[in-house]
């Protein structure tokens, strides 16, 4: 029997497979399709202090082996998440969940973190300092080492001893430098990558496809970039990494772990195939056996010399 258990700063997971924020809602749409308790855990929809409708539509565009989205953090706000979404989730998910939070000011991050850290159902706080779809927030905190560090310290102070992971953007020159700044500021771990900034133009309309002009590029096509960044961050920090970006198969999960990820998130692939995480979890032991992997923790970063 192979061992698929992994550990994120004390948060024990049966397996490393985690649906990524923004592709899994608050879980219950998928709970209608399969028993989501088979997941390692999942990262819920990016939540802000105040309710947000998000950006105008069209918010979705297709590209070669991937997609663009400009949803813009649509969510019901932290109070309603606690009052309605989490109780509803509790009925179909007995594990602890990753609370993904975002904001437009330090105070907003602190407010969300404080409220969600107090929830028993929350096992880890993932701080999105990397959303490319909102102005004056999200990504602007994650593109500068000192502001990423400031958000890290502020969230850590109210996190109720729950692990705090900073979710980083690939839209920077030196991602390792920002990861290091978060580590030095007390981050328990790093999640990466969020989406890459991209766009498409509708030739018939002679206008951008997305109403918000630009959006986040994700899907299979970004996998090599994501893998490279996980590799670079692994070399720069000692804290655990959740790797993500274009992961669509069991082999992709293992590549991410060899590059340095302790667990792996799956995003856009859920939208193509709502059963992808289930399929990967079911296939994982056989693929591990084929590759002579006994304990999944043994391969974390094992491709580094």
């Amino acid at each position: 029997m192979v061992n698929t258990h992994v550990n994120l700063s004390g948060f024990e997971l049966d397996n490393p497979v985690i649906p990524a924020s923004g592709t899994f809602g608050y879980g219950y749409e998928f709970a209608e399709l399969y028993d989501i308790n088979i997941l390692g855990t999942f990262s819920f929809k990016g939540t802000t202090r105040d309710p947000r409708f998000g950006n105008p539509t069209p918010r979705i565009a297709e590209c070669a082996s991937g997609m663009l989205n400009s949803v813009g953090l649509q969510n019901p706000g932290v109070d309603q998440v606690i009052a309605e979404e989490l109780p509803r989730l509790k009925k179909c998910f007995r594990k602890k969940v990753i609370a993904n939070i975002s904001g437009f000011s330090r105070d907003e991050y602190v407010c969300c973190a404080e409220k969600l850290a107090a929830q028993e159902q929350v096992g880890l706080i993932e701080v999105n300092v990397s959303c490319p779809n909102v102005h004056n927030g999200g990504m602007s905190f994650g593109t500068c080492p000192s502001s990423a560090a400031e958000i890290t310290r502020a969230v850590k102070a109210v996190a109720n001893h729950k692990p705090v992971y900073l979710k980083l953007t690939p839209n920077v020159t030196n991602v390792a430098e920002i990861a290091k700044a978060c580590e030095d500021a007390g981050a328990d771990g790093i999640s990466l990558i969020n989406t890459m900034l991209g766009m498409r133009i509708d030739l018939r309309k002679r206008k951008p496809v997305l109403a918000n002009t630009m959006g986040g590029f994700s899907g299979k096509a970004v996998f090599p970039v994501a893998l490279r960044m996980v590799w670079q961050v692994y070399e720069a920090v000692r804290i655990p990494i959740i790797g993500m970006g274009g992961v669509s198969s069991t082999e992709d999960v293992l590549e991410m772990m060899f590059a340095g990820a302790s667990a792996v998130q799956i995003g856009a692939a859920n939208l193509q195939n709502p059963f992808i995480c289930k399929e990967i979890i079911e296939e994982l032991p056989a693929v591990m056996e084929r590759l002579n992997i006994q304990n999944l923790t043994d391969i974390i970063g094992a491709a580094h010399s």
């Binding site: 998928f30 409708f53 998000g54 539509t57 918010r59 979705i60 989205n69 859920n270 939208l271």
Partner: peptide
């Protein structure tokens, strides 16, 4: 509307 998933997960087609 342009959709991402078609089953309510991605919020791509909200109104």
């Amino acid at each position: 509307e342009r959709m991402g998933c078609g089953f309510g997960a991605c919020m791509g087609c909200s109104c």
